[in-house]
Design a protein around this nucleic acid. Structure first.
Lengths: 254, 254
DNA sequence: CGCAGTTTTGAGACTGATCAATGCCTGTGG
DNA sequence: CCACAGGCATTGATCAGTCTCAAAACTGCG
């Protein structure tokens, strides 16, 4: 009982829900006391995934649901010959694993980009949430709907934007999401990505991604050095990407 | 009161929920009596959209939710210069408009491909559904999660498949969805699409789509004539597209 | 210092885009 | 019954964007 090992999926809650770092943020909506209480009891563990590790694997049968507490990750799928497509990036507040409730097997994988902390919820207790906390249930739907909006945007990008526009779009997207979570310092963010990740998210080759990024750098729109992204000309990026800035009411999370 | 006009959005329910054509299908799960009763009262109208008409427009503030009862449509987004991307196709049983519950404005449009019949639900009563019918609430989440799975697949296609593979994938996807709904006769389906629609769904130009389709026809994989699609070599298509056939439990719908 | 992973660069090949016609149906009006 | 218009499908020629291959230059780290 004593001397609990420092395992990846320990029984110890390093982060009590009452002091959830997400709740402190302005972007996220607060909980009613009884909701907080329920979520606290729903959380059965905290998972620490090391940078580069696979959190979920396509084909797995998953019995847990996760909320990202801290860190960056990405969802991806691969074709049988190894071609990989990053579907989107996973940031704090994102809910992972809902798909497993409608598909027998996981249809995508999730990998940690940085060290990632996740709250773990047992899938079989999801029913309790729906039964006793309709408000939280709506929040889950809200999160799913938001995912869909992001995927739609991405689809438009892959289908109809040129490489340059696509990269500008992705950069803005990442920057704005990071900023929303307070991860940006002025016009600068630390992105734990390699250009290979960008390429796989953009549906481009590594080489062409590099050349495109170089062009964006040379025209003084952005600056990318060793994982630090700096937005030099926000408006020009927005124009280039034809970025639509969508207003959102405060986000829920679980 | 008599002589009710044959309006697009009449107050008359041509299709009572008790005899919903979807319920008769094997793919869809049944309702408990009280659920059926609730949904029946939730449905406030039936909308008939003529082929080619716009059902929902990006930027609109939408106050209704819809279930497709019959017909084909598609969701799409456009860039400010007119480039259009079809996000996915909408078939009977699909639920439309959930996104509006998290975004102030619609982030995509929906257009009818054939004449389409939709059940109309008021958005503001969604809360009642969550509060009183947790089972239906889970169904909604299920539907949203399934959407996400489809979008993920699509994203992989646009990002990493070649034109040929992409087309094979889309054709299989459409065929299997139609078949699931009993819209296929043997290896043949009537698809109310032009090649322009295919192109916009695939992220390709019209010309290249045509040439690619021609190649698929010449190699005896499919046959496409005036809106009729015929699968000539299913296995070869599956292999070409690297199509993953995912098993699904019986679908819910609202 | 040397390695492994990443970024950068150049050259050439190829996929898919664009432009420009032409052909093919189907419905309409004379 | 024919002429014609409008929407779609088809084709060829050329062009541009992106990919692949190959190699070199960097970077952080043990």
């Amino acid at each position: 009982m004593n001397n609990i090992p420092h395992s990846t999926q320990g029984a110890v809650f390093q982060t009590p829900c009452a002091h959830c770092p997400l709740r402190a943020m302005q972007t996220f909506r607060g909980f009613a006391p009884e909701e907080l209480d329920f979520v606290r009891r729903l959380k059965i563990a905290e998972l620490h995934a090391v940078a580069g590790s696979t959190v979920l694997l396509e084909g797995d049968t998953v019995t847990h649901l996760y909320t990202v507490l801290a860190g960056w990750g990405f969802r991806y799928k691969t074709l049988s010959d190894g071609r990989r497509q990053i579907l989107n990036f996973v940031l704090p507040g994102d809910f992972i694993g809902l798909q497993s409730s409608c598909m027998a097997e996981m249809r995508h994988s999730v990998e940690a980009l940085s060290d990632v902390t996740l709250c773990v919820f047992p899938r079989e207790r999801l029913w309790e949430l729906y039964r006793d906390h309709p408000h939280l249930a709506m929040d889950l739907t809200w999160l799913a709907a938001r995912q869909e909006v992001l995927l739609d945007d991405n689809l438009l990008s892959l289908g109809r934007r040129t490489a340059r526009e696509r990269l500008a779009y992705l950069i803005l997207h990442l920057y704005l999401r990071a900023k929303e979570l307070g991860l940006a310092v002025g016009d600068e963010v630390a992105l734990p990505l390699t250009q290979q990740h960008l390429a796989d998210a953009l549906g481009l080759s590594l080489v062409h991604t590099n050349k495109t990024l170089k062009r964006l750098t040379r025209s003084e729109l952005v600056h990318w050095r060793g994982g630090r992204l700096r937005i030099l000309d926000f408006d020009a990026l927005v124009a280039l990407a034809r970025y639509e800035i969508g207003e959102q009411p405060p986000r829920p999370f679980i």
